[in-house]
């Protein structure tokens, strides 16, 4: 058994300092991903800095500089977040994304920040007997020519075709959320879209965070205008499976035309894919099947697929059409 030092710092700053001091240290929150990695040999930290008892578990309305936000503590459980009345009424995309993921037991254990920072489920990343640039830089990408059903089709690189597995992250991408981070230099705020990154030639890094950066909260703008939002996840079985593709959408309509439309895709890239070209094409438009198809195809111009992933193009197009048609109908009621 590997000797592991388990630390339970009293403050968030102490946690950050601990990880910064120990090169082999890592944060432990709900553990639903990290504990698997310890068993599989994917991660081998020598210090676990346990942040579960830090008081980061509130959900509260906060008046910020740019208006009111809903501030969600990093340690809020996925199940609590999904059940929160304000989240359910104002941000259904968040509740639906959470409930589309994992199982009841895991949602009781997993935290908000942990969910965002979970790692790819690429089978080669999780199998230490195979090469993987994300796990072991420079060894090669086994997924590129291997089992590809869950591979990325947007923004991938020759070094990595992994997808980000979080449903919550895709939901937050359409809400223009802000991530609150505590680092060695103090607290800072990162636009949600800048939290995760594309693999490029450094697939080992899933995010733009430094190793000792601790996510302490996520803030959702409480826009006075009501946005309809939802999340559709397509998977191989009805429950307990990662997305083949998923669609998060948020729409505001006036007189049958969009005044604000936001679209993000899961299961297709190394990060939640905010479909800004498609959004631009739909701005001020009526939501029709043809309009959505055309907008999606514009976004998909840069797609790279192979035999295993070709299906994702049609699945994504269809699922986006279905999701936006339903949402537009809801918004115009």
């Amino acid at each position: 058994m590997r000797a592991l030092d388990h630390r339970r710092p009293a403050t968030a700053q102490e946690a950050v300092d601990l990880v910064a001091r120990h090169p082999g240290a890592t944060f432990l929150a709900g553990g639903s991903n990290l504990v698997d990695h310890l068993k599989l040999g994917v991660a081998s930290p020598d210090v676990l800095v346990d942040v579960r008892r830090l008081p980061l578990d509130g959900i509260e309305r906060v008046e910020g500089e740019d208006g009111a936000v809903l501030r969600i503590g990093a340690n809020v459980r996925n199940s609590d977040l999904a059940a929160h009345p304000v989240v359910r009424s104002r941000f259904p995309v968040v509740a639906r994304a959470l409930l589309a993921g994992a199982s009841g037991q895991i949602r009781n254990q997993a935290t908000t920040a942990g969910n965002l920072l979970q790692r790819t489920r690429c089978v080669y990343f999780q199998d230490v007997t195979t090469p993987c640039n994300k796990r072991e830089p420079g060894t090669g990408c086994s997924a590129l020519e291997g089992y590809g059903r869950y591979n990325a089709i947007l923004g991938a690189s020759p070094d990595c075709v992994a997808t980000h597995p979080s449903d919550l992250a895709v939901g937050l991408a359409v809400l223009d959320a802000t991530v609150v981070v505590l680092g060695l230099e103090g607290e800072r705020r990162i636009p949600f879209d800048e939290l995760h990154r594309l693999p490029g030639d450094r697939p080992g890094a899933d995010t733009t965070l430094a190793r000792s950066d601790l996510v302490t909260a996520v803030e959702l703008p409480l826009d006075p205008d009501v946005h309809r939002s939802t999340y559709t996840k397509v998977r191989d079985r009805a429950s307990y499976a990662f997305a083949l593709v998923s669609v998060a959408a948020s729409v505001r309509m006036e007189e049958g035309r969009t005044t604000d439309v936001r679209l993000a895709w899961g299961g297709v890239a190394h990060k939640p894919w905010r479909a800004r070209r498609a959004e631009a094409a739909l701005a001020g438009q009526q939501i029709t099947e043809d309009a959505v198809r055309a907008a999606v195809d514009l976004e998909l111009e840069t797609t790279t697929t192979n035999r295993d992933t070709a299906y994702k193009v049609a699945m994504l197009r269809n699922t986006t059409v279905m999701t936006l048609l339903d949402l537009a109908e809801e918004a115009s009621r």
Binding site: V123, Q126, D127, R237, A238, S239
Partner: peptide
């Protein structure tokens, strides 16, 4: 070898199915 070697990647019917 089989690379879908756990019950997250080898899918059996869930209750919802």
């Amino acid at each position: 070898h089989v690379v879908t070697q756990d019950l997250a990647t080898y899918h059996v019917a869930s209750h919802a199915d």
